[in-house]
Structure formats: structure tokens, C-alpha cells
Computed example of a mutant assay.
Amino acid sequence: MPLAVLEFPRIDPVLVSLGPFAIRWYALAYIVGILLGWMYARALIRNERLWGGPAPLTVVDFDDFVVWVTLGIILGGRTGYVLFYNFDLFVADPLKIVKLWEGGMSFHGGFLGCVAAVVLFARSRGLSIPTVGDLTCAVAPIGILLGRLANFINGELWGRPAPDVPWAMVFPGGGPLPRHPSQLYEAGLEGLALFLLLFFAVRAGALKRPGLTVGLFACFYAVARSFCEFFREPDPQLGFLWGGMTMGMLLSVPLFLAGVGFVVHALRRPPLGRATPAEAA
């Protein structure tokens, strides 16, 4: 056992209660993440230097897209959790599917939901699918960061036992053993580090190559998530899967491969400033 174990900061998961209604930190993380991402995306669209000229979509386009991507995140995230992590539970009690306040969202499902939203919206507006995807991925780490911090506040998705780690914590519901605060590891890597990577990539011209930001996002997230899975306790209903891997690791493999494909394809095409309209589409 370590000489001292950090005390878990017992923050009430409910921020404000108004009669039967409650505002939870987890819900607030989604709301604030979407709002901050929307504001950042608008700033990127207005900065012509990042695109080598006027952006291929307008601020109004992205304003309308926010509704689509919000639905994609929620529906995809919940559907992914049901299919990938707890299918038997929801088969036994289908009404639990709509009880979002009880928790249960999958990043990989949410990512697929965003992909669907990007494709459907871009096609409906005649916009470049990779370009809309690039903007979405450039701002996504903001929501991931806030979501992982909310996971920590909720005392959920804790890490594996770490009796010799001085910053280990005893989580409510996690048993008597001190554990890795893996939610904070994920917030730092999947959120902050990924945001900074894409921030500098965008300023180095990534948006001029449609699909490059999507690829960088997918590759880095897959690696960061797989690394963090070594410290995160597997979901009890699943445990360790093939080869000792977790579900998060297995789902990150196709995500990484898809990211590599996007990066290679984007780098083989001329940047927007030199491409014809047909090539940029």
C-alpha cells in the first residue's frame, strides 16, 4: 500500500436540483462541450488563412449542422453502448435504453453517430464530406475532455487497482483498493493532448487537405484510448476479451486503420488552394 492515498473528491453528481428536475455535471459536460466546439468551429471557418481562401462552408452551414451532430452524438453514443457493452441488460429491460440519466455512452458509437450526421448533412447541402468531418474532429476533443472530467466527478469508469501508485484513489463503489484515476488520464490524452495536436495541425495547414484532420483525430484517439485501457478497469459485464484486450482496445483497431487511410488519402491530394472544385469535393 502507498504511504498515503489521495482522497476522492466527493462532488455531488447533481449540480442543481429544481424540484423533480436535476442538472447533472455529466449533462452539463455535453452541453458546454457542444457550445464551445460550435464557437471554435465558427472561428475556424472565418479564418481564411487556414483554408487558403474562403472556407468551403459558411458559418450558417455549421450553425445548422450543430443540431445534426448533437443528435448523432447522443443516438450513436447510446446505441453503441447498448450494442458493444451491455446488450443483454437492454434486451432484458428495453426501457433502460431511454434512461440516459443513468449513464452509459460509448465514444466509438458516438463517433459513428457523428460520421452519419456528417455524411447526411454534407450531402443535403452539397458540401465536402471530409471538410465537414475535419471541422467536427477539430473541435471534438473539447467535449471529450469535459466528458472524462464528468466521469471522474461521477466516480465512474475508474481504473485498475494501483496499490503502489502515490496518486491512486479509493473510488466510491470501486471497493477498498486504491485505483488509477484513469478518467483523468483519458481527459489529458484523449482531450487536452488531442486538442493541442489538432490545434497546431490546423494552423500548419491541415484544413487545406480535406480528411487529414479526421485521420489525425482517429489515429491519435485510437492510440491514446488503447494506452489508457491498460490503466482502466474493464467493464464488469465484459471483462477481458480476445488476447487480453478490452472492448475499448478492440474498437480502436478499426478506428486507427480508418485514420491511416484518411491521412494517406489526404496527403496524396493537392491542398485546397491548388485543387479544382471537383478535386476538393
Rank of each mutant, 00 (worst) to 15 (best):
D88Y: 10
R123C: 04
L120E: 07
A92K: 13
G80M: 07
I74E: 04
W68P: 13
L120T: 15
K96W: 01
F111D: 06
V82W: 12
W101V: 12
F121T: 15
F111T: 11
G72P: 08
K99D: 14
F121S: 05
P94Q: 02
V69N: 02
V115C: 11
F87M: 14
A122N: 03
D93F: 03
G103P: 15
S124T: 11
G76H: 04
R78K: 05
F111N: 07
R123S: 06
S124F: 00
V115K: 01
G72C: 05
G109Y: 02
V82T: 04
E102W: 00
L120W: 09
G103I: 09
E102D: 07
N86A: 14
H108I: 05
L120D: 02
T70S: 10
G104H: 08
I73L: 04
R78G: 11
L75W: 02
F87G: 03
R123A: 09
G103V: 04
V115N: 01
N86D: 15
A122V: 04
G109R: 01
W101K: 07
L71I: 05
I74K: 11
R123H: 11
D93K: 12
F90L: 12
G76L: 09
M105Y: 11
F84W: 07
F111Q: 02
M105L: 15
A116E: 08
G104P: 13
A116C: 03
L112P: 13
D93L: 03
I73E: 00
V82K: 14
A117S: 12
V69Y: 04
L112K: 11
D93I: 15
D93R: 06
I97S: 15
V98Q: 00
T79N: 02
G72V: 11
Y81N: 14
T70L: 14
